[in-house]
Design a protein around this nucleic acid. Structure first.
Lengths: 148, 148
DNA sequence: GCAAAGTGCTTGCGTTCGGAAATATATCGG
DNA sequence: CCGATATATTTCCGAACGCAAGCACTTTGC
């Protein structure tokens, strides 16, 4: 007898692999962003001052701080992200979302929204999608600020 | 107004990153397997003859064929996987699950089941977990054979 | 104040992955 | 039967990641 929780976890992992495969290509070729790049910028988008520290971003994305450093470098050179120091703590190097970055992530979000709709196009009712979103939200509720 | 389908997708991606972070470490240190290694072996486990072709595995795992080649190489050297040719089609090189592999993935599965239970330990009812598993199952239903 | 511990960030190294190209075999159309 | 196309697998190359180490700065305990 297989446990339901195990079944849910396995299916979640499989579903993610499927979604990443479906989204990754167009997101990269059209907007020049990876899926993680987009999530990073979306976190910045909803931050109070359009900025977050690198460790904060690392926790939200569930990646290592070094990954954030390496992710932000090219986006900074492209003018989508900026760097801002903290007046009180000289260790902090905030990642900021520039105007260019806001436009790019806005366009990328539209692509993501369109492809998200495609995922549930067949055999899905509105209340079922909402149900799924709610349940997944409870999984990520333990994490720092929820997205969207 | 944010679309519900978009919300569900974003939360699924975030949840996966969280789960991978929680599972990956112990799975690697205790059983010497990555999460993808485990999924690969679990697919073999439920295959009719304990074997699958590499392209079949690639489709099920949503990874490239080259990744399957690279993943199976070390597991084969450790004696968990084997290689078997097809009598009719000389191109095929089936990946087989050895007795050693069956024992290892069996132990790894127990770890995964235990940690899966931990994920839903608080604030989750049995019917909610089942509901989540069902909904996620519909997402992966379009894929080749479902796991578990 | 000051040494010690803690935190934020970056770099070097090894590992893992996808895409393109190469090889081998199979299937199809004539 | 034979050339053209399709499929299965592997290898090469570049990109992305985690971990450990290191540096800069801050906080804590005395």
């Amino acid at each position: 007898m297989t446990q339901t929780s195990f079944l849910a976890v396995i299916r979640l992992l499989s579903a993610q692999a499927l979604l990443e495969q479906k989204f990754s290509q167009e997101l990269g070729s059209v907007h020049g962003l990876s899926l993680n790049d987009s999530l990073l910028m979306m976190h910045l988008e909803q931050a109070p001052l359009l900025r977050l520290s690198r460790v904060d971003l690392a926790k939200r994305l569930c990646v290592s701080p070094s990954t954030v450093t390496r992710m932000t470098l090219p986006l900074e050179k492209l003018g989508m992200l900026g760097r801002e120091a903290d007046a009180r703590d000289a260790r902090l190097a905030y990642v900021t979302l520039t105007d260019t970055g806001r436009k790019v992530i806005g366009a990328a979000r539209q692509t993501l929204e369109r492809k998200s709709k495609e995922v549930f196009k067949d055999r899905w009712g509105a209340e079922e999608i909402e149900n799924l979103a709610d349940l997944l939200g409870r999984l990520t509720a333990s994490q720092p600020n929820d997205l969207v």
